Simulated assay, not measured.
Amino acid sequence: MKLLYAMLLLPVIHLFIFQYIPMYGVIIAFKDFNIAQGIWGSPWNRFEHFVTLFNDFIFIRALRNTLIISGLKLLFGFPAPILFALLLNEMKWLRFKKLTQSVSFLPHFMSWVVVASMLIEVVSPERGVVNYIITLFGGDPVHFLASKLYFIPLIIISDIWKEVGWASIIYIASIVSISPDLYEAGEMDGANRFQKAWYITIPSIMPVIIIMFILRISHILNGGFDQVLNLYNPLVYEVGDIIDTYVYRVGLVQFKFDYSAAVGLFKNVVGVILLVVTNQIVRRHSEHGVW
């Protein structure tokens, strides 16, 4: 037991140094920060940044886009790894099953810089395979990444493609832990493969699904900074600009560190509130929850 605590010590120290100590910097969200005066020497601003925040049309637009993109990712992206895990579980050819699972993991380990570059080439209006097929059937090339109509669907599809395999690991592990006796009992009762998945597999992994859903809700204001930053452009700011990219432009491009800290604090507070509220709602209707 002492050895286990000793192994835990290093990650706890790392977490404390790099995650908790820097939290004092959130004070600049309540100050008119000046580098020369420092964090403590800068004057307090009486919540002026938060007032400006909710009067800023660009921030409101970024908030709306974040909710839309995150909501669609939740709607389509959250069930995808569950469905993928269920389909893998139904595969009888073991070697093909392992190959499929291994290949599905690979996109997760590629950075969004690489994935975005691949996607840009695939949908390019001049040399992309998608537009080649469109023109082959007599259509006109479409600039997908510069279109407000197609940008969000591309964001959702590329996110699912990249993360579905990795996200399915926890569900696959939960399915493997289900007792084979339950499936044998289902077969004796005449259940087919779909019925066994619906009445045995899904209810058995429901606690894991609920916990993952609660954690996903708490990140509803995370629209995917790396992904959007590498794919969007000024032509699609109206539908593609999210809170994270807005903070990036305001904080690191315009050097408004105090204002960007206020935006980040707002996002994190909303995330904590959603986590607590969602967990309490789930706990009232079931015995499962994060705590």
Results as ranks from 00 to 15, higher is better:
residue 26 V to P: 09
residue 129 V to N: 15
residue 260 S to Y: 00
residue 99 L to V: 12
residue 172 I to G: 09
residue 108 H to M: 10
residue 268 N to T: 10
residue 105 F to Q: 14
residue 36 A to C: 07
residue 82 I to W: 02
residue 130 V to A: 09
residue 40 W to Y: 12
residue 122 V to C: 10
residue 80 A to Q: 04
residue 61 R to L: 07
residue 216 R to T: 06
residue 243 I to F: 04
residue 156 I to Q: 06
residue 109 F to I: 11
residue 204 S to A: 08
residue 200 I to K: 08
residue 46 R to T: 15
residue 231 L to H: 02
residue 232 Y to H: 12
residue 283 R to G: 11
residue 214 I to E: 09
residue 5 Y to C: 11
residue 38 G to T: 09
residue 263 V to L: 03
residue 78 F to Y: 02
residue 89 N to M: 11
residue 145 L to E: 00
residue 69 I to C: 06
residue 204 S to C: 10
residue 138 G to Y: 02
residue 287 E to V: 13
residue 173 A to M: 12
residue 142 V to A: 09
residue 209 I to S: 08
residue 102 S to G: 10
residue 253 V to S: 01
residue 101 Q to P: 09
residue 129 V to G: 14
residue 150 Y to Q: 00
residue 171 Y to N: 02
residue 33 F to S: 00
residue 92 K to D: 15
residue 210 I to R: 06
residue 75 L to A: 02
residue 169 I to R: 02
residue 82 I to H: 00
residue 2 K to H: 13
residue 210 I to H: 05
residue 169 I to Y: 05
residue 146 A to T: 12
residue 250 V to A: 04
residue 74 L to N: 01
residue 104 S to K: 05
residue 266 F to W: 07
residue 40 W to E: 11
residue 23 M to L: 11
residue 253 V to A: 00
residue 183 Y to P: 04
residue 262 A to W: 04
residue 290 V to Y: 01
residue 21 I to S: 01
residue 287 E to T: 14
residue 198 W to S: 15
residue 287 E to C: 13
residue 6 A to D: 10
residue 249 R to S: 02
residue 81 P to E: 04
residue 289 G to S: 12
residue 192 N to Q: 10
residue 231 L to V: 05
residue 39 I to T: 07
residue 109 F to R: 03
residue 190 G to I: 01
residue 271 G to N: 08
residue 81 P to C: 02
residue 25 G to Y: 14
residue 113 V to T: 09
residue 253 V to N: 01
residue 41 G to Y: 05
residue 93 W to H: 15
residue 98 K to G: 13
residue 123 V to T: 05
residue 185 A to H: 08
residue 130 V to R: 03
residue 211 I to T: 10
residue 102 S to V: 13
residue 97 K to E: 14
residue 224 G to D: 01
residue 114 V to C: 08
residue 175 I to V: 12
residue 260 S to H: 00
residue 274 L to D: 01
residue 71 G to P: 04
residue 206 M to F: 11
residue 8 L to K: 00
residue 152 I to N: 07
residue 291 W to M: 14
residue 165 G to I: 07
residue 253 V to Q: 04
residue 157 I to M: 09
residue 33 F to D: 00
residue 6 A to F: 12
residue 234 P to V: 08
residue 268 N to P: 03
residue 246 Y to K: 10
residue 59 F to H: 03
residue 159 D to K: 11
residue 40 W to Q: 13
residue 188 M to N: 12
residue 198 W to Q: 15
residue 144 F to R: 04
residue 92 K to W: 15
residue 32 D to I: 00
residue 131 N to W: 06
residue 121 E to C: 15
residue 215 L to N: 07
